[in-house]
Design a protein around this nucleic acid. Structure first.
Lengths: 186, 186
DNA sequence: TATAAGATACCGTCTGGACGGTTTGTCAAG
DNA sequence: CTTGACAAACCGTCCAGACGGTATCTTATA
């Protein structure tokens, strides 16, 4: 007989809201802040409601993972289409994504995921699979030491952004980006 | 009347044991596996015993951090002494440490720290301080984009080792190391 | 097209267990 | 005989998940 029962049902929106809130919470309060109570409350849903959409906490994190890797895959594919050079094409697309994420505000979701990834063995494994799958797929064009190095550097930059351990000015950032692009052609 | 009461008292050894176990546990079961109960039990000490050495959990993690950064600082300083070239000297020392850690078995401690670092805001801040302190100290020799890039790449490689997301053969590894060294001279 | 009959989308409470930390007690060494 | 190094029992809190319910949506059938 509560209000929430009477409001219009919009499952997909609620689901999206839950994922979004989960990402935001872990950003603001660390991974420990992602509790079912906190997430559901911040999303304006009861805990029961949350557990209806995601049967357990792991499913919530997996949902986050799915969402973000799907988006990443789409962006990478798009980026690769507009790259005429075959060698290092995937690497350059990856670079674009990382720089886009560190520059803009969309980083949130990925930042939470990185943290959750490292603490949760199950998600670590899923990420490992993502990486090896893509490495295998583009083994012909993106397996040179230069390409590997470029991707590693991107990961390092990304990590630094998460930890806010460096304060890199824009010119330096661009210089590094140019270097990474050069590496991807080696 | 228990065994531990009768065994020779060796507080420093127990302390070291506790730190070691904490590192191992987080490796095997993720950061969530590092509970006071689990650590103390695996170290063959009661929880009271653990809390005697470290008044709370944060103190345990801080102890780990201190231990490892001290060792890192010592290694870096040693490495820097034997480097005749000023430019990028710190970066190359950093590279040596990372490669040594990823090659050998000593990585464990740092791996746990990375994970704990990301989840624990307090440790994240301490790491940030470590990085900025060293960046400031060597701003004259190690602040070029090339040096930064080299260090980022090392971080990325290190992260990959933690996540075991890549399986890099030794030749590729050495090739990348050579590239990073070249970058440190730019 | 109206409506009965599910199916789906929630709500709110409860519980069992884990976990960080405290307290009190015990033993051994100096 | 004091102090440091532990043990063991205990406490309060927090949290994941179960459960039983209720309201809305959909679909099939008459």
């Amino acid at each position: 007989m509560s209000i929430a029962h009477h409001r219009r049902k919009q499952p997909e929106l609620v689901r999206q809201q839950l994922l979004e809130v989960a990402a935001r919470l872990s950003l603001e309060q660390g991974a420990a802040g992602v509790t079912l109570d906190a997430v559901s409350q911040a999303a304006g849903v009861s805990k029961g409601g949350l557990l209806h959409h995601f049967p357990n906490k792991m499913a919530l994190l997996n949902g986050l993972f799915d969402d973000l890797t799907e988006k990443l895959d789409r962006t990478i594919e798009l980026e690769m289409r507009s790259d005429p050079v075959a060698h290092g094409r995937f690497t350059r697309a990856y670079l674009s994504c990382v720089f886009a994420m560190t520059d803009e505000a969309d980083a949130q979701g990925w930042q939470v995921l990185t943290i959750a990834l490292l603490s949760e063995p199950q998600l670590r494994e899923r990420w490992r699979l993502w990486v090896t799958d893509h490495a295998d797929e583009f083994v012909g064009t993106d397996s040179s030491p230069g390409c590997l190095l470029a991707r590693f550097a991107a990961d390092g930059l990304w990590l630094a952004d998460i930890l806010k351990s460096h304060d890199i000015d824009q010119p330096t950032r661009q210089a590094m980006r140019a270097q990474m692009l050069a590496l991807s052609l080696q």
